[in-house]
Simulated assay, not measured.
Amino acid sequence: MGSVAGIEPINRQLPPIESVQAVLFDVDGTLADSDPLHYVAFRDMLSEMGYNDGIPITEDFFSAFISGKHNSEIGVFLFPDWDQQRRDQWLDDKEALFRRLAAEHLEPVAGLLRLTEWVKKKGFRRAAVTNAPRSNAVQMIASVGLTDFFEHLVIGSECERAKPFPDPYLKALEHFGVSAENAFAFEDSPAGLGAAVAAGLPVVGITTGNPGPTLVAAGAAFLIKDYDDAALWSKLEKEAVTSSL
């Protein structure tokens, strides 16, 4: 399975559980509500350097132009007149600040360990698929206690194209030798959701950092607020739906 552009989105329903072979997870905002820490890091460093005349960026600005995007794209957007080396150094410094904040404040999304135990019990293959730098992703996964859970880690910058292109998800599926018809993903951002949908995957949207309608518009099969959400377990355990999807 290669890095193929233009794959048609499939039906937005999750596959029958008995046909599932793999479950794929985004990291930032999906395993832990990390966006607030990224926002603080960007806000403080941009203010310190006098960006936008020193007026701090808003959460709406962060959600619209930064959240879920790859650092190379963010760097060009924020600093169009800088050379790439200068952008890369600034973003490296920002990620170092984020890791310091994460070490103190990062917590798993509610119900995450309940879900991951269910996934392990079912024997599904499992990968983390993220645009985060590898050092960030490894730390976040460790911080939520899932170092031994994931069998594979796909980093967007290590693929031909990062999210919002489907390449990272296609690479995860190829690694396991699993078809998109026999897998599904969890995502929290429109860019990540678009990448998974373009790879042919049905996606559960988690509303940790982005509004539900935005995730539905990006292709979410349905929405959950966290991993204890009854809407999720009614699907996974094939129980009668008791909450509005």
Rank of each mutant, 00 (worst) to 15 (best):
86 R>E: 15
86 R>N: 07
87 R>K: 13
87 R>A: 11
88 D>M: 08
91 L>W: 01
92 D>T: 09
94 K>P: 03
98 F>I: 06
103 A>L: 14
105 H>Y: 13
105 H>C: 00
108 P>I: 03
110 A>D: 14
110 A>E: 14
115 L>Y: 01
116 T>H: 09
118 W>F: 15
119 V>D: 07
123 G>K: 02
124 F>C: 09
125 R>D: 05
126 R>G: 01
126 R>L: 09
127 A>V: 10
130 T>Y: 00
130 T>V: 12
131 N>Q: 07
131 N>M: 13
132 A>Y: 03
135 S>Y: 06
137 A>M: 04
139 Q>E: 15
139 Q>P: 00
141 I>T: 01
141 I>F: 04
142 A>D: 15
142 A>C: 06
150 F>A: 09
154 V>K: 07
154 V>C: 02
155 I>Y: 10
157 S>Q: 14
159 C>Q: 14
161 R>C: 11
163 K>Q: 08
165 F>Q: 08
166 P>T: 12
170 L>M: 15
172 A>D: 07
174 E>V: 06
174 E>F: 08
175 H>Q: 12
177 G>W: 09
180 A>W: 03
180 A>C: 12
180 A>F: 01
181 E>S: 13
183 A>L: 08
184 F>Y: 14
184 F>G: 12
190 P>G: 03
192 G>C: 05
193 L>S: 09
199 A>F: 01
200 G>S: 09
200 G>H: 03
201 L>N: 10
203 V>T: 14
